[in-house]
């Protein structure tokens, strides 16, 4: 196999970018056992697709493409209907410490992302990972303008959702 890197280099690169695995698996799989399974599947598919990796491309961009494709296919195959969990609206966030509040907000944001449709979820994951619009466009295959429109729309929905529970 004419890989651009050997096994050790590959594992190191995956390790350096493990945040991608964590976020993609969390977004497309709620069950902890399935998440491990999905992460293994993504790593395996990355290794299988490695001969096609172009070193001029950023590793994280390529990794995102493979991870999202595997996760979406996995999600659709397993027919895991991830319904957004109802956000606890009786919970007063004002009573919490700021650290707890940040954690709670992060959890709520994760729930919100899990409630999006597969492709919107991919856009939001990339946006939250501070990817540029052009990089998001390369990974998802849509135009930068379209990326900007979608992110703005998703953020508006997010704002409305969180305003509603306050």
């Amino acid at each position: 196999m004419g890989n651009a890197f050997n096994e050790a280099q590959f594992l190191e690169l995956v390790q350096q970018n493990s945040g991608i695995l964590y976020k993609v698996c969390n977004a497309y799989c709620r069950n902890a056992n399935n998440r491990q399974d999905l992460a293994q599947e993504i790593i395996y598919q990355l290794w299988k697709s490695a001969p096609g990796y172009n070193p001029q491309q950023k590793f994280s961009t390529w990794m995102y493409r493979v991870a999202l494709n595997v996760a979406i296919s996995y999600y659709r195959k397993e027919k895991q209907v991830i319904k957004p969990e109802k956000v606890n609206d009786t919970h007063s966030m004002a009573e919490d410490t700021s650290a707890h509040e940040a954690e709670e907000q992060s959890r709520q944001l994760q729930q919100f992302i899990n409630g999006l449709r597969e492709l919107d979820r991919a856009i939001m994951l990339l946006y939250l990972d501070a990817k540029s619009y052009s990089e998001i466009a390369i990974i998802t295959g849509i135009t930068e303008t379209n990326v900007a429109t979608k992110i703005s729309r998703i953020k508006n929905i997010l704002k409305e959702k969180f305003s509603a529970i306050k």
Binding site: V66, N69, I138, T140
Partner: peptide, 11 residues
């Protein structure tokens, strides 16, 4: 199927 392609095309 080649998973390295962009998400919308592959899916």
């Amino acid at each position: 199927i080649n998973n390295s392609g962009n998400v919308t095309d592959v899916q």
